[in-house]
Write a protein that binds this DNA or RNA. Sequence first.
DNA 1: TTGTGTGAATGCCTTCACAGCT
DNA 2: AGCTGTGAAGGCATTCACACAA
Lengths: 252, 252
Amino acid sequence: MATGRTHRPATRSRGIPEATVARLPLYLRALTALSERSVPTVSSEELAAAAGVNSAKLRKDFSYLGSYGTRGVGYDVEYLVYQISRELGLTQDWPVVIVGIGNLGAALANYGGFASRGFRVAALIDADPAMAGKPVAGISVQHTDELEKIIEDNGVSIGVIATPAGAAQQVCERLVAAGVTSILNFAPTVLSVPDGVDVRKVDLSIELQILAFHEQRKAGEEAAAADGVLPPAAAKQQRKGPDGDVPAVMPA
Amino acid sequence: MATGRTHRPATRSRGIPEATVARLPLYLRALTALSERSVPTVSSEELAAAAGVNSAKLRKDFSYLGSYGTRGVGYDVEYLVYQISRELGLTQDWPVVIVGIGNLGAALANYGGFASRGFRVAALIDADPAMAGKPVAGISVQHTDELEKIIEDNGVSIGVIATPAGAAQQVCERLVAAGVTSILNFAPTVLSVPDGVDVRKVDLSIELQILAFHEQRKAGEEAAAADGVLPPAAAKQQRKGPDGDVPAVMPA
DNA sequence: TTGTGTGAATGCCTTCACAGCT
DNA sequence: AGCTGTGAAGGCATTCACACAA
């Protein structure tokens, strides 16, 4: 994941496993593309390829939704689009507020895929008084003072936090107090929220670090491969550092 | 979450489980904060709370790295910072290119947490000739024509794609051909890459859809709770749609 | 014959609970 | 006495492989 939940234990939601829920948007995107090309039906094999998963997983995923699909034929594209949309709750409109209209907040406000699928930017909110009134993506930025009123007036239940890390927890608390129960957090902080509130986080820095880990590992493998075979023993023989390099000094 | 690998099967990397790798940056961030406050040692309980995980998981994670930590005392903050940094490959410098300098690309370029942890923005690349030469985050944007040269001259192995969806696959192929082996993809597309190349994706739209799913579910629960008890039977009795509402008509 | 739907097997991750250091 | 390190247990998720429907 690039991503993770925070609260709510591993309770399967209405019988649909969390891992499956996380893939439904992927299938939906692939199906939408097929729909636009007026493709009437698709097999699990084809759709899986388009979504970047394997077909067994896709079929198992769909089996949690019900028995859509025709044996020997495949799935009806339009029908599946509708079923998945409904399952994800995209047949209704979700008003969303974005808090923190810096570079990132502006990018999110301008993001097209937003409006396309059931989400509507209800308001842009920033703490800087100088931002108030300025139009971003065609929407006038409002000051943080208005936060509670905006949430309540628009019945907003999903909030996006794109503030600096320092402000995130406080913003989060105000959002929750005003009635928001789902938060997408772009600030590099762990948010603490009461039970019943969902938090998902998107963290550039974490993703890069995970890539760096694998990148480093690739480099190490190359070196080992150049040496010949990688030493089969020599691992797991000494504690304190699984590698050979145990630095005697502490770094600054 | 919100995120996912693409290639490379579930092979545990050098014995460290993928799930653990994904949490190391979280621990590192919490430890860095402690370090800045000059806290000398920390227990698994405290650190876990700061990182938003439970302590058993944290201890198990650390056990894959080695036996750092002192029983009855806890972990030495500075030492752990170093060990995790080394494990993640952050003791070396990773030059990174960002392709696609729109709103999002600019936001990424300006992101501070970038430079702080071993990553260095080597170049900003955009296909728009009008962007070429313009400074973003203190770096002059270069044209896509220069892509291969930039990658090779700087020894870049990590690329960030922040282009529109339509351009992503092509950019990806050029990056890979030029020597990039890790890609962070912000474009809402499934990238296909050769073996040995890691892709992680960050997708706003998917995250929102997952939140919407749970949000919808909360609303449903409330309704059921208001009615009294949720009907225990009535589920799993009829195929074709796990719900009661089987629409006879297909939506547009 | 083709391709879905799904029990069964497998493997990974998390959680438990406690032995063993300091 | 306190807290780490880790076998063992339990729970999810993925994959396999095939019965069954069209």
